[in-house]
Amino acid sequence: MQRQPHLNRLLSIFLVVSAVVAASLVLGQVVGGFYLVNLAKDEIATVNPTKSAEQDSSGKKKVLRLKQFNYYTVQIAAFSQQEEALALGRKLAEKSLPVVITGEPPYKVCLGFVNNQEKLLTLANSIQVNGQKSIVVKGEVNSIAFKFAAEDTFAEKEIAPFLGRVSICLEKGLLLYGSTDIKDYPESDFKGKFSLLVGELYEVSTMGLNIARQEKARETTKGILILTERCRDWAKSLEVLNGQWQEKNLILSQQQALALVEDYYRFLGNSN
């Protein structure tokens, strides 16, 4: 693997967060990662997931369709075997370059989550694995729907609104993260916006915890609790950023958002 000199600044930052990321180095989970974008509160489209639930053509299922939005990420490599992806993830973590590994084949080793492809081109061109340059790829949040039995009123009235709130938080996160450079975030402009997102994430986390405690949530309890934990971890990382306006904390908060995206996608996929 080769990294060009202008990555040195990023690597010094990742040295600080690598100890935190190491605890997440498990199968299908986060090895690390980061995100990007820009927020004005009135730019966020609201979602009413209950009204979005529509009857499936079979008459036996209902489908929750939430607003789709794109992001870009650096795909460092992709493997058919998960262990190969994890092995690369470990090597990158040892070099203080945390990544995210997707949870299903092909297992993609990804770095970054932005709304602007050009923001990642320099970084992608700087990372090579076995002589192969990394590439910038486009992903989509809500590319798949949440499906549930037509008679499952609990899923429609409890789980669907929860997923809608998670989706809105992710969209706001994407609009907030404009780069990985703290100089692009005037503290006076962004602290309040991050604080608003922190409040929403804690609300969603509480909402998910209440759902998971109910008997009717039995089949989805584990997935809901994972999303609840991810929302809480993201909120905590943003609180750290608000307390210490430093680049390492900015990137750590972006990594937590990326972890939520992966587990959110997995939850939706498990319903199909």
Rank of each mutant, 00 (worst) to 15 (best):
1 M>F: 10
2 Q>R: 14
4 Q>I: 14
4 Q>Y: 13
8 N>K: 12
11 L>K: 04
13 I>Y: 08
17 V>I: 15
18 S>I: 00
18 S>L: 00
19 A>L: 06
22 A>N: 08
22 A>L: 08
23 A>S: 14
23 A>G: 08
25 L>D: 06
26 V>E: 14
27 L>D: 15
30 V>W: 01
34 F>Y: 03
34 F>H: 00
35 Y>F: 14
37 V>I: 09
40 A>G: 12
41 K>N: 13
44 I>K: 07
46 T>F: 08
47 V>H: 03
48 N>D: 15
49 P>I: 07
53 A>Y: 03
56 D>P: 01
57 S>Q: 10
57 S>T: 10
59 G>S: 10
59 G>K: 09
61 K>D: 11
62 K>L: 12
64 L>I: 02
65 R>N: 10
67 K>V: 10
68 Q>A: 14
69 F>Y: 13
71 Y>A: 02
72 Y>T: 08
72 Y>Q: 02
75 Q>D: 05
77 A>Q: 01
78 A>S: 15
81 Q>N: 14
81 Q>Y: 13
82 Q>L: 12
84 E>I: 06
87 A>P: 05
87 A>K: 12
90 R>K: 15
92 L>S: 01
93 A>Q: 11
93 A>E: 06
97 L>V: 06
98 P>I: 09
98 P>N: 05
99 V>E: 04
102 T>R: 05
105 P>N: 00
105 P>H: 01
110 C>E: 10
112 G>W: 00
114 V>S: 04
121 L>P: 01
123 L>Y: 10
123 L>S: 08
124 A>T: 07
124 A>G: 02
127 I>P: 06
128 Q>F: 13
133 K>H: 14
137 V>G: 03
140 E>R: 14
140 E>Q: 15
142 N>K: 05
145 A>H: 03
148 F>W: 07
148 F>D: 04
148 F>L: 07
150 A>V: 15
150 A>L: 11
156 E>L: 14
158 E>C: 00
160 A>V: 00
161 P>E: 03
163 L>S: 08
164 G>V: 04
165 R>A: 13
166 V>G: 00
168 I>E: 07
171 E>S: 03
172 K>S: 07
173 G>Y: 00
175 L>A: 12
178 G>E: 07
183 K>M: 10
187 E>R: 13
187 E>M: 14
192 G>S: 13
195 S>I: 09
195 S>V: 09
196 L>D: 13
196 L>I: 15
199 G>A: 12
201 L>A: 01
202 Y>H: 12
204 V>M: 09
204 V>H: 04
206 T>W: 11
207 M>I: 02
211 I>H: 05
221 T>F: 02
224 I>H: 03
231 C>M: 12
232 R>V: 03
233 D>H: 07
233 D>F: 09
233 D>S: 12
234 W>A: 04
239 E>K: 02
239 E>V: 09
241 L>F: 04
244 Q>C: 06
244 Q>R: 12
245 W>I: 09
247 E>R: 00
250 L>Q: 03
252 L>G: 00
252 L>Y: 06
253 S>C: 13
254 Q>R: 01
254 Q>I: 07
254 Q>Y: 00
255 Q>W: 00
261 V>G: 01
266 R>L: 13
268 L>M: 11
269 G>D: 12
270 N>C: 08
270 N>H: 11
271 S>P: 05
